[in-house]
Nucleic acid binder design. Structure first.
Length: 568
RNA sequence: UGGGGUGUGGUGCAAUGGUAGCACACCGGCCUUUGGAGCCGAGAAUGGAGGUUCGAAUCCUCCCGCCCCAGCCA
């Protein structure tokens, strides 16, 4: 698999692995793991870790385990396990039969704890949480040892057994490692190994009332599974000495912890607390709202796993805190969809057009290319008739110089069909709103070419009024107006940065008839507009609902924006 | 304040003593039956100050900035 390796960019983790392979540190093995805590939904930040861990294993011909790190019964649920598995599979990764749970190791971890007690390396502390905090001290002063620090092995064994038996209340006793209360690394000031939590665990039920902490569980779980490279995020850097301490003290397989920088994206939030706030505050429709950075939301939005994987690959791996530009994500999505999304004609804001010189009852079927990037996608027939809909934005009564679409007296091409010329504008007498355009077509231009060689400046999309299918279209945009949504003045809620136009729903869009039976989740390019997918929740054969995944790049929008600046 | 980590164009990542490169973004042009796609081009960076060296993003010294750690969360 090292051929795969050469094609993808190098990074510091690969260098470490290369060295380990060269020195045969782990017998040349590469075995990673993705260890989520099942207490929420996976988001794009997790995707980075998933791609890294599974990708590394793939690239080196190794293995990657899926391990649910479920040591805290108060926050974890089976529902999350299910959702996470679905998301990881959707992303394109397979853990085969290697689906593990830290809770499966509770017995073994308990044995490890006993071993440490017997060796005088752990003790039961009867200090209260407040007292423990106080003894630990601030980071510029050494901490003080607990008065219970030197209990005998016998007493500790007995107490620990009583902890497990449920004889104590939550928070009254802990098992701590005896390391160094004066360490400048707070993690080594006698870290807690076990705490008492009388709560039902979603997998082990009421079998346990003491639960290992992350520090005591993670490294040992890696060890049990024979993990070679345990990749985690930067904030665990200070925990590495502890990670190493446990494995050394227990004299068991020692995997290597490597830390990398978390993946951050601008114009969104990633912290669980904030995501919950968005959901519970009704600012989005749920965890799978297409504007959410969750994998379930992105899937519903129409993003492809390939695009997300490509983004993770392209953004590299380092130890510097960084923020990826949402434009990068959008570029990856467009790059992928451009190659594979079939093109269709859809009118979002319909403006009725009557072709005055086109026969009343005639219908012809015009060939349209399904995907110019992929000739094998073939062609389809699109009905054309006397009354059409075009995009309201494609007509201006009094166009500025750089607008080269339809205007009174002007000729444009209807995609794949004819040249039409605007010969009249019908307005609502009261409101003055344009309700209809009167046009003529040139029969000689069928297919879009004029025999006399005359050119038009624009090609616009259209649908036949009688044949079009009505649809709802949800135009999604970035959820926040600011790159950093949490950047608010003192006292202002970060949610004030929510983009009020992040969702615009259009109800009477007209799409070409071939879309009538479109499958939920299927993706299309609406020509000249963007990429859209059939909503997997609300769309039905009787009522099509499309989500805008991402718009097409839009030069005209840039011109408008530039004009706005100039006139502002 | 103690400890750990980290600084390369606007953003993200390369370059481990030898011409600072790639992608995204931005700007200009070409092409175009999608103002899409594609193609071409421009601008733009080594946190700072010293030092070692023929030569420093890279090695040394000092300084500065940013991030993480005082949960019985992970």
């Amino acid at each position: 698999m090292s051929t795969n390796e050469i094609s993808t960019p190098s990074n510091f983790i690969k260098k470490i692995i290369d060295e380990d392979i060269a020195k045969s540190t782990f017998g040349g093995r590469v075995h990673t793991r993705f260890p989520p805590e099942p207490n929420g939904y996976l988001h794009i930040g997790h995707a980075k870790s998933i791609c890294l861990n599974f990708g590394l294993a793939q690239g080196y011909g190794g293995l990657c385990n899926l391990r649910f790190d479920d040591t805290n019964p108060t926050t974890e649920e089976a529902e999350y396990v299910k959702a996470m598995k679905e998301d990881i599979r959707w992303l394109g990764f397979d853990w085969q039969d290697r689906e593990f749970y830290t809770s499966d190791y509770f017995d073994q971890l308990y044995e490890f704890a006993m071993q440490l007690i017997k060796e005088g390396k752990a003790y039961v502390d009867s200090l209260s949480p407040e007292e423990i905090k106080e003894h630990r001290g601030p980071w510029n002063e050494p901490g003080k040892g607990s008065p219970y620090r030197n209990r005998s092995v016998e007493e500790n064994l007995q107490l620990f057994e009583r902890m497990r038996a449920g004889e104590f209340k939550d928070g009254t006793q802990t098992l701590r490692a005896k390391i160094d209360m004066t360490s400048s690394n707070m993690n080594l000031r006698d870290p807690i190994l076990y705490r008492i939590i009388h709560a039902k665990h979603y997998r082990t039920g009421n079998r346990w009332c003491i639960y290992p902490t992350y520090d005591f569980a993670h490294g040992q779980s890696d060890s049990i599974e024979g993990i070679t490279h345990s990749i985690c995020t930067l904030e665990f850097e200070d925990h590495r000495p502890l990670y190493d301490w446990f494995l050394d003290a227990l004299k068991i397989h020692h995997s290597k912890q490597i830390e990398f920088a978390r993946f951050n994206l601008n114009y969104t939030v990633m912290s669980k607390r904030k995501l919950i706030e968005l959901v519970e505050g009704g600012h989005v429709s749920g965890w799978n709202d297409p504007r959410m950075p969750t994998l379930t939301g992105m899937r519903r939005r129409g993003y492809t796993p390939e695009a997300i994987r490509n983004l993770c690959e392209k953004t590299g791996v380092s130890k510097v805190n960084s923020v990826i530009d949402a434009a990068m994500l959008e570029d990856c999505v467009r790059e992928d969809l451009n190659k594979r999304a079939p093109r269709v004609l859809a009118v979002l804001n319909p403006l009725r057009v009557v072709i005055e010189n086109y026969p009343e009852s005639e219908v012809e079927y015009i060939d349209a290319i399904n995907n110019p990037e992929d000739p094998s996608a073939g062609t389809r027939k699109v009905p054309f008739s006397r009354v059409l809909y075009i995009e309201r934005d494609d007509f201006m009564e009094d166009p500025p110089p750089k607008f080269y679409r339809l205007a009174p007296g002007r000729e444009v091409r209807l995609r794949y069909a004819y040249f039409i010329k605007c010969v009249g504008v019908t307005k609502d007498k009261k409101t003055g709103e344009i309700v209809e355009l009167r046009c003529t077509y040139d029969p000689e231009t069928r297919g879009g070419q004029a025999p006399d060689g005359r050119k038009v400046n624009a090609t616009i999309h259209w649908v036949s009024a009688d044949h079009a299918v009505e649809a709802e279209v949800r135009l999604y945009d970035r959820l926040f107006l600011k790159e950093d949504p949490t950047d608010v003045p003192e006292g202002v809620d970060w949610k004030a940065n929510i983009n009020p136009n992040s969702l615009v729903t259009l109800n009477s869009c007209q799409v070409e008839p071939s879309l009538a039976g479109a499958e939920p989740g299927s993706r299309y390019q609406f020509e000249r507009l963007g990429y859209f997918c059939v909503d997997s929740v609300d769309s039905s054969p009787g009522k099509l609902v499309f989500n805008r995944t991402v718009s097409l790049r839009d030069q005209w929008a840039k011109v408008l924006k530039a004009e706005k600046w100039r006139t502002a």
